[in-house]
């Protein structure tokens, strides 16, 4: 009897260990949801969120929602705020997922599909990564959003900025709604690094 009990307990221990191992992944999914509900936007950093234009053109709503969440990520990175960037990244992922391409030509649709597939991945990674990785993904995401706007257009006033130092001096672009340079790639380390490349609208 004693032997049986011992065999059983060994088996149970094995089972418990294995189950615990398989649980790891399940938990990770839960943590993926953005962690903070506060936006930390009121800390005197940047108030671009409030500067967003009222949209009266319904065709542009989806694009503007994307730009809006993109700018929120940008502001969070300027403020070195990983949590706020993650939250906005999650929202941006949803915006891309729900983007309606039906009003575009087939060629544009194809290009948009490509851009959105890529951008979705970057938004998702931003929603779950440490800040340095968020910045890497933001670099490529910026390119995607710039290319997207070239197709969809927007009625928002935007500045396309360029930081020559990021990514081992290869440089990186970003979009901003304000003229003043506030660098999302270096944050407080090098806030003023960068120049305006062009103005949109």
């Amino acid at each position: 009897m004693r032997k049986v009990r011992m065999t059983l307990s060994i088996l149970t221990m094995t089972l418990v260990t294995l189950t615990a191992m398989s649980c790891k992944d399940g938990k990770k999914d839960g943590e993926r949801a953005p962690m903070s509900n506060e936006m930390h936007q009121d800390e005197g950093h940047n108030h671009e969120g409030s500067e967003k234009m009222m949209t009266n053109n319904s065709g542009n709503n989806a694009t503007n929602a994307i730009i809006d969440n993109y700018l929120q990520i940008k502001n969070a990175l300027v403020a070195d705020d990983q949590e706020a960037a993650a939250k906005a990244g999650g929202n941006l992922f949803g915006d891309f997922k729900n983007f309606d391409k039906s009003s575009y030509s087939s060629e544009e649709k194809q290009e948009l599909t490509d851009i959105i597939e890529d951008a979705k991945e970057h938004a998702e990674h931003i929603s779950e990564s440490p800040i340095e990785h968020q910045r890497e993904h933001f670099d490529i995401l910026s390119k995607d959003v710039i290319d997207m706007i070239a197709i969809t257009g927007t009625d928002m006033k935007l500045y396309q900025d360029f930081c020559p130092m990021y990514n081992d001096n290869k440089g990186a672009q970003w979009l901003s709604a304000t003229k003043e340079i506030k660098n999302p790639y270096f944050g407080s380390k090098m806030m003023k690094c960068g120049e305006i490349q062009r103005e949109i609208n």
């Binding site: 009990r5 059983l8 307990s9 088996l11 149970t12 094995t14 089972l15």
Partner: peptide, 11 residues
């Protein structure tokens, strides 16, 4: 004992 048995069966 019963619990262990159930676990074993489940496994």
């Amino acid at each position: 004992k019963i619990i262990l048995l159930i676990l074993l069966v489940a496994f």
